[in-house]
Design a protein around this nucleic acid. Sequence first.
DNA 1: AACTTATCAAGAAAATAATTTGCAGGGATC
DNA 2: GATCCCTGCAAATTATTTTCTTGATAAGTT
Lengths: 288, 288
Amino acid sequence: MDIFSTLQEDRARLSASESRIADIVVNDFEFAVNASIIELAERAEVSPPTVTRFCRRLGCESFSDFKVQLARTAHVGVRYLKPESKSSDPADVAQDIITKAQNALFLVHRSLDFAAIEAAVAQIAKAEMIYAFGSGGNSSMIADELQNRLFRLGLRITASSDHGMQLMMAAAARSGDVIIGSSFSGRNAELVRAFALAREAKVKTIALTQTGSAVAKAAEIVVPIDIPEGTNIYRPTSTRIAYIATVDILASLVAYAVQPKATVTLRRIKRQLITHRDGDDDKQLLGD
Amino acid sequence: MDIFSTLQEDRARLSASESRIADIVVNDFEFAVNASIIELAERAEVSPPTVTRFCRRLGCESFSDFKVQLARTAHVGVRYLKPESKSSDPADVAQDIITKAQNALFLVHRSLDFAAIEAAVAQIAKAEMIYAFGSGGNSSMIADELQNRLFRLGLRITASSDHGMQLMMAAAARSGDVIIGSSFSGRNAELVRAFALAREAKVKTIALTQTGSAVAKAAEIVVPIDIPEGTNIYRPTSTRIAYIATVDILASLVAYAVQPKATVTLRRIKRQLITHRDGDDDKQLLGD
DNA sequence: AACTTATCAAGAAAATAATTTGCAGGGATC
DNA sequence: GATCCCTGCAAATTATTTTCTTGATAAGTT
């Protein structure tokens, strides 16, 4: 667990003096990581021992331990509190995107629902046939990505971003099949319909979407992905990164679940790719 | 600038004793951030003052300043040196993937070639027509992603993952057009051929690929993306994240470059999407 | 209602530990 | 052989933690 979560959680248990310290840490993080215990104490109008006690209460060994914990979390964890820059300078834009992407990873990691993931992995690994659905550019990329990752494991999968096809496929799917649907917004009405159709036929339905959304309610297993998207409509970065990472995790776990089958297929695919390139090395990653 | 770059750069200027300290810091980072100056000194078989001087040489105020700098960089920056875990426990797998993804972002950010990016952005923004090429699952995703991002800006773009089509399109392209080709491996021979064909017709060629690779050599503008991929072939995480982030940066910068044209198009697309969903909100990101 | 007691927060001062500085010896280089 | 730089020692400084004490609040008792 990281300091920032702990700080949020334990906020209630803190005394008045300790709360003042917490405020300073949260609001002026830069100061906090650089300050000595005396400086921090002075600013919070408490005595140094109180600061030590504050650190201990948060589960740290000592004040310096606290600072280290703080520094390592905060690099990734704090900035999402900060307003994004409005600059169009390349360095700023890059900084902004990278930061948001890292925050997204940080947030996904923290909020991963392993129970749901394991349930999804179990279903995927034993599926007769898998249908990956998603529409609208972003989610269709996720569907393709699922196909790209899972067919390599020897699984039978097809991806579709076409609403009409999705409905027909959902209707054609049989018990033992799995439908994985992705929706960033959670409000893809056609996907909801496809899920409903599938569930009538006892087809397993897995949704990658926002908690509590229409799509989430329509699916049997929900792997929730909840990322606050920034307001800049030019940059759907965070959510996409979060989805990609989640798919990566799912696919990796499925790989472990189907391992014996998978290695054979991978080797065959790899051989195919190598002849397509100018020969050689085996370490090169699978696919271009 | 972060400590780790500095450490790498200044490595040559360090004395023997200081090098020993550097070794420990790099190889056993966990120890280094938690150790006191005395512990670190003992382990490196030097005296505490030498450690202080080492920190100063790296541009830090003091030893504790050094530790803070270290902690804040290293959370993201060091782990790619570490062997990845072989565990198949979901929490470990997730941790591993998230860490690798964060490292990838860290590394891309550090190695971004802004000159190349700006050159690419300038060409893309004024292109008559854009062709996005990529094959093999990963790169084809990048090509689709480019299309997905750039068409929203009112640019004319098509993506293709079909080698045959790519060659024909390259042949059909005219001066004023731009071809953007992506290749993770840098050894997609067909893409090289498409670039060659395009350059004969004075079509601008932009490659997203590894520095020094065949694809890189074939293109006029190279936006280099160099990420060491792990050895676990089930997990092409890092590179993909790096490419996505780079495309995000490119697309955002193009958005700024073509702004007036773009907002109109975005508004039209958005209206279209909203009727497709169950009404409402404008803050929702563009596309699902 | 008044007093006692327990509990806890918080600061003062002392003790401890960590860090830095000044200085001097040793080795390498020119 | 002189100079320069690295390095460690020891002292000085500074920072941090521990211990002890005080004061406040709340619950229980007479």
